[in-house]
Design a protein around this nucleic acid. Structure first.
Ligand SMILES: [Mn+2]
Ligand SMILES: [Mn+2]
Ligand SMILES: [Zn+2]
Ligand SMILES: [Zn+2]
Lengths: 143, 143
DNA sequence: CTGAAACTGAGATTGAATTGCAATTTAACT
DNA sequence: AGTTAAATTGCAATTCAATCTCAGTTTCAG
């Protein structure tokens, strides 16, 4: 489980599993979905643990490094993260009319991307595909 | 041509085609490829025109609004743009080590996306695919 | 021409993220 | 348990792209 993985990762790097780091780890895995560092910081505080903003940022980096967490996007505001351990990869379709988000996954699509990476001698490690348009509901509503 | 399009866009909004705005427009279309606002600012200066950083940022927003320019991605540093008018659709691979951006286009990939949209009764109108990883150069350098 | 509205540049401000550093904590080894 | 070096922390200072403020300037419809 994630605790084990993180402690292992820290051990290998000569880093220590301090309460602050563990508090961040626990909080990150205490809920599902996307989050901003500040939101995480507040949740930790609210949960009765303590970790400064600096520690939250620093630990978040470590979690990304060890693969438990992923930086989803950089928005105008700041970065958005999500924990990935225990979740499978998917991409998104977003309806420009109602904002609905449809998640999808296609093995074929993933393979095709790998092919394209090879063709370009690129070692792809992650990707973000966002398809924009109109969902069924909004399309029928329009007629 | 882009000049006409931009002036039209400005007119419709009650905005004025000032020398600064036109200088930014011209510079944006004076070369092909990706660029950061600061780089554009320096190019404009170097070209003998004048436009403050503030105007460059402000005009860049307008150009995006009117569809002549697109925000390609957001890096640790800042935004990266490209002019789209006169260019056909393509997606990007971005090297996490050196920042190089590789453009690619795959008919198969586009078709596959259309298929996936159909399967989800979604009318896709645009998409952004960004593959992150390491380019050939950075990968060999590492060994 | 004229005047109201739009625009500009310089510098101030914002805010997420990073960093310097003195004090504190950790844990390996007696 | 006690010692100690290395790691870690929090706070405040800093960074830096991006945005905003606002007084002076420019544009252009009438
Ligand atoms: Mn999702
Ligand atoms: Mn491109
Ligand atoms: Zn919809
Ligand atoms: Zn590279």
């Amino acid at each position: 489980m994630e605790n084990k993985i993180f402690r292992n990762f820290l051990g290998e790097k000569g880093l220590k599993p301090t309460k602050e780091r563990i508090a961040v780890l626990s909080e990150v895995f205490s809920f599902h979905g996307h989050f901003e560092p500040e939101y995480l910081y507040l949740r930790i505080k609210n949960a009765g643990s303590k970790a400064s903003r600096a520690s939250v940022y620093r630990t978040l980096s470590l979690l990304v490094d060890c693969g438990l967490v992923k930086k989803v996007t950089r928005t105008e505001k700041g970065n958005i993260y999500e924990h990935t351990y225990g979740h499978s990869h998917h991409d998104h379709m977003i309806c420009d009319a109602c904002g609905e988000i449809i998640e999808f996954y296609s093995e074929k699509l993933e393979n095709l991307q790998d092919e394209i990476c090879s063709e370009n001698s690129f070692a792809g490690s992650s990707h973000t595909l966002e398809i924009r348009g109109h969902c069924k509901k909004c399309r029928t509503k329009q007629s």
